[in-house]
Design a binder for these strands. Sequence first.
DNA 1: GTAGTTAATTAAGCCGCTTAATAAAGTAGG
DNA 2: CCTACTTTATTAAGCGGCTTAATTAACTAC
Lengths: 157, 157
Amino acid sequence: MDRERLLDEILMLLPVLWRGVGRPDPVEMGEIASRGIPVDAHVSPGHVQILIALSRGPHSLGQLAEDLGVSRPAATQLVDKLVEHGMVERRQDPADRRVVLVDYVPGMQDIARRITESRRRRLVVAMEPLTDEEARAFAKGLRLLAEGFGAAPVEES
Amino acid sequence: MDRERLLDEILMLLPVLWRGVGRPDPVEMGEIASRGIPVDAHVSPGHVQILIALSRGPHSLGQLAEDLGVSRPAATQLVDKLVEHGMVERRQDPADRRVVLVDYVPGMQDIARRITESRRRRLVVAMEPLTDEEARAFAKGLRLLAEGFGAAPVEES
DNA sequence: GTAGTTAATTAAGCCGCTTAATAAAGTAGG
DNA sequence: CCTACTTTATTAAGCGGCTTAATTAACTAC
């Protein structure tokens, strides 16, 4: 199997990629600062995830946690920071007052888009050499791996 | 561009995947425990990276740091733990006594392989639905992204 | 209304990483 | 040879993101 070699490469590359993605991006900071947002607004991958998720409508905190694959406290924390920076807000679900609905602050949707845009741009540039087909295969692999690793191996009733 | 959608998906999936990969794997622990290694030997992605890198021969600490895309102190720390667990050892480079060469403890190469094997297995299973071509495209994408994000944007002499 | 469940938060702590400071060894020019 | 500079690794201090456990508040059911 030729994949043997691919595996080692993937195991080497994944963490490198991750650390790269996670590192704060000065350019991005500039983007933010040029609008009314505080300069120290570090936008972590988790924050980007939330902003993207919200583009499909308001989410409860639990939904967000599940979408991101993190615990609820972690989601709380991420939302806290976004609230602090005035990007999103918490509302109560009238149907069930336990759940808090997270949504963009009115008018912030565009700005959120712009902020995540900076990340997207880096991706676009990096992925340029890929054909459309390869890009699709790449996303497919990502999807499979996220599923395979993300799913908690909880069985054994 | 149809990629627009792919980008959002990638930005959502990458962190999910990473967190999944990073989570300690109970199975793996079993693997380790069944040999002479202490049970609390958490093997993080970084450790796996080092074990894989060493399969191509001894590396200096600086080389390791560069290969993994981390700072030297971080590499020191990772090596510390592997030394603690008896997997690798530090030697002095006779040619330049500043550099410490990291290598497997004699006889540990196989065991190291077995430990990383458990990670590999999960990858193999997850990637099974991919055709060979898709798998190659996936690795290619990973390589490009790691390069694009990992490379420090240091220019401007 | 009491008991049990579910959603979110708070609290405490771990892990992996960073930068800054230090120690030790090599290099070069007077 | 000794001074000044550079390079390699380590130590120290601190931060961010995550986890589990404990708490609070709201809903459900009998």
